[in-house]
């Protein structure tokens, strides 16, 4: 006879059920609401396709920038102890905590002509306000903490001794990174890219201030909602959800360890 379940078991089960319903109900409703005709019509809308592509390409670019710039920082935070480390970690986390319109305002305020930095980047032809560059800048800003924190956790799980052994066998620090650390950390780096990308694709608050045009998908959805109502914004939302889901599920599939590894691990 099975052992009688305690009330705590039913509490965990019902809590999980409520949370799943809370997340899935609105999303399922959004996906199910538009008719096939309106979905097809939206798919053929050039502006929608352009906005979704812009969302994905700028998010992807922000993730790649995070990979290049964030990996060394994640390595430093995972491996070294130094005075002020906690402060650096807090600064890295700041974009998660600050309301995103403020991030937009902050970026604009230093990228404008009134700031030496703005004048400096404009003098070399870099324009932030109302450009794709501006969108990528904002997305990198909001996505970086997600990349750095994910990769840092992945690096911390790799024993530092492996690097020490590698060095004693004649490999330099760079060679050790590419021959030992990277092969063991690439899954967490890919997971970091996904996290960064996911955060970037959903960004609205900061983008709407820095670059309303060219229009990314969340801004387009917002515009259609305010101008034409729920019915016209829903199909765009569905396409953004489907494209993002396909992308993330694909990436997640790559990052999952193989079945045999999972068993032995």
């Amino acid at each position: 006879m099975p052992v009688k379940k305690e009330p705590f078991f039913w509490l965990t089960l019902s809590s999980a059920g409520i949370i799943l319903a809370f997340i899935l109900l609105p999303l399922v409703h959004v996906i199910a609401a538009p008719s096939m005709e309106s979905l097809w019509e939206t798919f053929n809308d050039k502006d929608v396709r352009k906005a979704i592509w812009l969302s994905i390409s700028t998010s992807g670019l922000a993730a790649i920038i995070s990979l290049v710039a964030g990996t060394p920082t994640a390595y430093l935070l995972a491996r070294k102890e130094f005075p002020g480390k906690r402060l650096v970690e807090s600064v890295v986390d700041l974009p998660i905590m600050i309301p995103h319109p403020i991030i937009g305002i902050a970026i604009l305020s230093i990228a404008g002509r009134n700031h030496w930095f703005g004048r400096a980047i404009q003098s070399i032809g870099v324009e932030i306000m109302g450009t794709t560059t501006g969108i990528v800048t904002v997305l990198t800003f909001v996505g970086l903490p997600f990349y750095i924190n994910t990769v840092k956790a992945g690096l911390e799980s790799i024993p530092e001794r492996l690097e020490k052994v590698s060095r004693s066998l004649g490999a330099s620090q760079t060679q050790t990174f590419f021959r030992v650390v990277f092969p063991l950390a690439w899954r967490s780096m890919l997971a970091g890219l996904i996290m960064c990308c996911a955060r970037a694709i959903s960004e609205f608050g900061a983008i709407v201030i820095v670059a309303y045009h060219p229009m990314v998908a969340p801004v387009l959805i917002y515009e259609r909602f305010t101008a034409y109502g729920l019915k016209y914004s829903q199909p765009v939302a569905v396409w953004l959800i489907l494209v993002s889901l396909a992308l993330f599920l694909g990436l997640r599939f790559i990052t999952l360890p193989s079945a045999s590894k999972a068993k032995t691990g």
Binding site: P159, R161, L162, K164, V165, S166, R167, S168, L169, G170, A171, S172, Q173, R179, V180, P183, L184
Partner: peptide, 28 residues
């Protein structure tokens, strides 16, 4: 730097590279 010392080290937990097989570990 460690790579120029000519000093080998063996740890208690062996510290083998988990992504390489036995032969590749030795040839590292």
């Amino acid at each position: 730097p460690p790579e120029r010392r000519g000093v080998g080290i063996v740890y208690q937990d062996a510290g083998l590279f988990p992504h390489l097989n036995v032969e590749k570990n030795i040839a590292y």
